[in-house]
């Protein structure tokens, strides 16, 4: 019962945050909705007995990605006339929701064809995660490190002023 209530609170926060993200005109408020969603996601990871993933989510997604995007939004500091004019925004949102809803049902039904029960297991702590990460998944890990390096260089090159 307690688990269900915690899950419901987190889910309401996440859904409200994501709806605020896609419906706000001001970009900073969208970023705040995104922040709420990411924190709720970390809580959901913690509910799945996955402490390390929850901490990584807090540190990377909340601490780095959201803060970086907020910094970018405040640096760009777009004036009202530079924002896109979207007079039919809610109409678009409603009709695309109708269009996407069958896909949501399809996704949910596809996912629920897998096992219906949580298996009894100890929590996935950093020891278990690290031993799997550095034995079975070491090649994807290295590829990801190269991807991060390439992304860093690419970001520097793209955002540089043309002289």
């Amino acid at each position: 019962m307690l688990e269900i209530s915690i899950f419901s609170i987190l889910a309401i926060f996440m859904l409200g945050g994501s709806f605020a993200m896609i419906s706000n005109k001001q970009t900073v408020f969208s970023a705040f909705g995104f922040l709420v969603t990411m924190i709720g996601m970390a809580g959901i990871f913690a509910m799945l007995n996955n402490q390390f993933l929850a901490m990584a989510q807090i540190m990377v997604s909340v601490g780095a990605v959201v803060v970086l995007s907020m910094l970018t939004i405040l640096t760009v500091n777009a004036k009202e006339e530079n924002l896109p004019k979207e007079p039919h925004k809610y109409k678009w949102i409603i009709f695309s929701t109708i269009a996407v809803a069958p896909f949501t049902v399809l996704l949910y039904k596809t996912l629920t064809t897998m096992d219906r029960h949580f298996s009894e297991m100890a929590t996935i702590d950093s020891k278990v995660l690290g031993s799997v990460l550095f034995s079975k998944w070491v090649l994807p890990f290295e590829i990801l490190s190269i991807l991060l390096l390439a992304a860093m260089l690419g970001a520097i090159v793209i955002a540089r002023k043309k002289s």
């Binding site: 996955n50 997604s61 970086l68 996935i124 998944w137 990801l144 991060l148 992304a151």
Partner: peptide, 20 residues
């Protein structure tokens, strides 16, 4: 969980490039 962890890294890389 390992895949989700790697995905968080991909999200970080995507954020850097997209914001630039």
């Amino acid at each position: 969980s390992v895949m989700a962890l790697l995905m968080i890294g991909v999200i970080a890389a995507e954020a850097a490039v997209f914001l630039a």
